[in-house]
Amino acid sequence: VLKALERTRQLDIPDEKTMPVLMKLLEEAGGNWSYIKLDNYTALVDAIYSVED
């Protein structure tokens, strides 16, 4: 979780936006981090930006 938060902080995305999206992605992935961690957490960042749209 810390590495995911560090990555999104680099992009000026607050933890308050990151955590709900991260928890949803983890739930959808059955707790499997490998998809979320791919390409420096690209799936997480993309999911956060899609929620903002």
Results as ranks from 00 to 15, higher is better:
A43G: 07
L2M: 13
M19G: 02
I48P: 00
L5M: 04
P14N: 04
E6D: 07
L5H: 02
L11C: 09
K24I: 05
V51T: 14
E6F: 09
G31H: 09
K37Y: 11
D15C: 06
K17G: 02
L26T: 00
L44F: 02
A43T: 09
A43Q: 10
Y41S: 00
P20D: 08
L44N: 01
Y41R: 00
T18P: 01
D12F: 12
W33D: 04
A29C: 14
I36P: 01
L22R: 00
K37A: 15
I13F: 06
V51A: 14
E16A: 11
G31I: 05
P20S: 11
P20C: 10
I48E: 00
E6R: 07
I36V: 08
M19C: 13
I13T: 02
R7H: 08
R9V: 03
L5Y: 00
R7V: 12
E28G: 08
S50G: 12
L25C: 04
I36T: 01
D15P: 04
T42W: 12
W33L: 03
D12K: 14
P14I: 05
Q10Y: 09
D53V: 14
I13D: 01
T18Y: 03
D12A: 13
R7T: 07
G30K: 12
E27M: 11
A47F: 06
M19D: 00
M23W: 10
Y35D: 09
R9E: 02
L2D: 13
I13C: 04
K37N: 10
E6I: 11
I48F: 04
V1P: 04
Q10S: 13
L22T: 00
A43P: 12
I36S: 00
N32M: 07
V1Q: 06
L25H: 00
L11I: 05
T42G: 12
I13S: 03
Y41Q: 01
V1C: 14
L26N: 00
E27N: 10
L11G: 03
D39F: 09
A47N: 04
G30W: 06
K17R: 12
L25I: 06
N40I: 05
L26V: 05
E27C: 12
T18M: 07
S50D: 10
T8H: 03
V21Q: 03
D12L: 13
Y35W: 14
A4V: 06
D15A: 03
K3T: 08
S34Y: 15
L25V: 04
L25W: 04
K17E: 07
V51S: 15
N40L: 06
